[in-house]
Each structure stands twice: as structure tokens, then as C-alpha cells.
Nucleic acid binder design. Structure first.
Length: 287
DNA sequence: CCTAACTCCTGCATGC
DNA sequence: TGCATGCAGGAGTTAG
């Protein structure tokens, strides 16, 4: 599943391959792939004709192509989304949803998404705290790789919440970019159970958890960046190029790398959570 | 205001 | 073999 590091790899590839080019044709093959566009797919296609892609930006798991008319193509990969840069005569992918060509006659950009949890939307840019950001992304918190991210604010806000720590990690309005995989990894490194109440975290513990989340995503990005084939702006979260580096996620019944005890899987929030029963015991007074 | 359950979707694995 | 069921889960929406 694409989380911050995977989306950042895609962003870098698109910035290299698409920025500076002028959009020619846009074909929406599945209406579900465009979001918040009441005017429909024909209008979506028409509005993008002739626009220049200025740059490609990102906040958390959201990415957007900045256009030359103060708007942007906001993109979220959802669970299975990919953005591919393909030859013009390439065979269409089975789950190709939106296809862009450019006036220079070079490679096309394909938005491919099997489960259609992802999508693209045209949105206006607004100014927020001195940063230009699509209106629909303004409610999302900065991610910890953003230089303007404030650890102190994050610690203050997470400790003020009345919820479980994993829910807070997945809350994109607190800190963005973390999904189920990196949440489990950060909790394993911090030796915290997913159900630990956030208001029971000390300031140092909250800071430590944040540092682990930041570090695990930075490490994944470093690995993804080196294995990235720039011809194909392609991230497949399911194959997971970072899977060798995972200590918790997907390791049910496998030994903990710290203590050797088999990890367990808990059902939580309609998804799976993996933890070490010894290193990450259930906190006192829970459940 | 806050928190949490619900919902969208397709392909694959599993069980009877 | 075939069909039903479960599972993967990000985030907007809705309910309380």
C-alpha cells in the first residue's frame, strides 16, 4: 500500500518526466477515478487541454501536479493506485483509468488503479501558512519530512487526544504520510501496544514515537530511491520493495527480531495489526 | 467540538 | 469444480 515513501518516489519520477510538459489529450476511462468533479468526465478532459505541468508536489500521501493556471491535479493512490510513464504505443493496462498525452509527442502518463480507492481531481491552489496547497489538501497535516513540520506541535496535539495511539498515527490531520504498515513499524520500534491511550504518552515517549515513524519512512524512501527505475514511475505497494526491512508488518507467527517470541496479529479498525506480545504488551487497564 | 463506525472497490486465498 | 466468504485498507461521510 502506498504510504509516504512510495508516494514520494512517484512524485520524484513525475517531476522528472512530466514537469514542464504541456497536456494534450486526457481520456477518463472510468468515472470513479475522477473525484469531486460534478461536471463529469468530458469537462475534466476539456479543462486540462493545453495546461502546462509546472511542478509536482506532495503532502503526506497526497500528491499534486501544479498547473499554469493556479490549479492542480490532486492525486491519491489509495490502496492500489499507480502512475506510469509509458510509450505511446504501449498496451493499455487492464485497470487503466485515466490517460494523458502531451503536445511534445513523448511518453504518456497513465493512472492505473485496480481497487479504485484512489483518484484524481482538479482543484484550486490556496495559500496556507505561506504555502501553496490545493484546497482539498489543506485539512491534511504536514508530514514529518516537511521542513516546516513541528514536532512540538505534534506532541502537544497527540497527547491532547482521547484515543488509541495507532488511531492517532493513522489520523492524517495530526501528522500525514503514515499508513497501516509504517504505523505498525513505528509502534514496534517504540515498544508500544496499538491500544495505548494517547493521553498516557509522556512527552519524551511521544517524541520517540514520532522519531521512529520519521526514521522508518526515511529508510524506506532511501531504499525505494535506489531501486527506482525512472523509466517507469511505478510503485507497487503490494510487492513492497521495503518488505525486507519490515520488523512487524505481515510477520504473524514469525520471531521478533528483538526477543525471539512469535509476533501476533490483532484485528483492529477493520484491518490487521502486528505486534510482539513481549515487547509490546497490552497496557494496564485496557480491554 | 470530538470520536468511531461505516462505506467504497477488485482480486486472490480459503473452505465446504 | 464452483460458489460463498473473508481479507487487503485510505479517507470521506455519517452517526452519536
Amino acid at each position: 500500500m502506498p504510504e509516504l515513501p512510495e508516494v514520494e518516489v512517484v512524485r520524484r519520477g513525475l517531476d522528472e518526466w512530466i514537469s514542464g510538459r504541456t497536456i494534450d489529450t486526457v481520456r477518463v476511462l472510468n468515472a470513479r477515478a475522477i473525484r469531486q468533479h460534478e461536471a463529469g468526465r468530458a469537462d475534466f478532459e476539456k479543462r486540462l487541454w493545453g495546461r502546462v505541468v509546472v511542478s509536482v508536489e506532495r503532502r503526506g500521501k497526497y500528491m499534486w501536479l501544479v498547473l499554469d493556471d493556479d490549479s492542480a491535479i490532486v492525486t491519491h493512490l489509495g490502496m492500489s493506485g499507480q502512475v506510469l510513464v509509458q510509450e505511446l504505443d504501449a498496451e493499455p493496462e487492464k485497470h487503466l483509468r485515466i490517460r494523458f498525452t502531451f503536445t511534445d509527442g513523448g511518453r504518456a502518463m497513465h493512472f492505473v488503479d485496480q481497487r479504485t480507492f484512489g483518484g484524481m481531481a482538479i482543484d484550486d491552489l490556496v495559500t496556507q501558512d505561506g504555502l501553496r496547497v490545493p484546497e482539498s489538501v489543506a485539512h491534511i497535516a504536514l508530514d514529518p519530512l516537511n521542513p516546516a513540520f513541528s514536532p512540538e506541535d505534534f506532541v502537544k496535539r497527540i497527547r491532547a487526544k482521547n484515543t488509541e495511539v495507532k488511531r492517532a498515527l493513522l489520523d492524517q490531520t495530526l501528522m500525514s504520510g503514515v499508513g497501516n504498515i509504517y504505523a505498525d513499524e513505528a509502534l514496534w520500534r517504540a515498544k508500544l501496544h496499538w491500544a495505548t491511550p494517547t493521553n498516557r504518552l509522556s512527552k519524551p515517549k511521544a517524541l520517540e514515537l514520532l522519531a521512529h515513524a520519521t526514521e522508518v519512512m526515511s529508510e524506506a524512501l532511501a531504499v525505494g530511491g535506489t531501486s527506482f527505475d525512472s523509466l517507469y514511475v511505478n510503485v507497487n505497494g503490494e510487492s513492497g520493495y521495503f518488505s525486507r526491512g519490515l520488523n512487524a508488518y505481515g510477520r504473524e507467527d514469525e520471531p521478533c527480531y528483538r526477543c525471539g517470541r512469535p509476533l501476533v496479529r490483532d484485528a483492529f479498525m477493520n484491518r490487521s495489526s502486528f505486534r510482539c506480545p513481549t515487547c509490546q504488551p497490552k497496557p494496564r487497564g485496557i480491554g
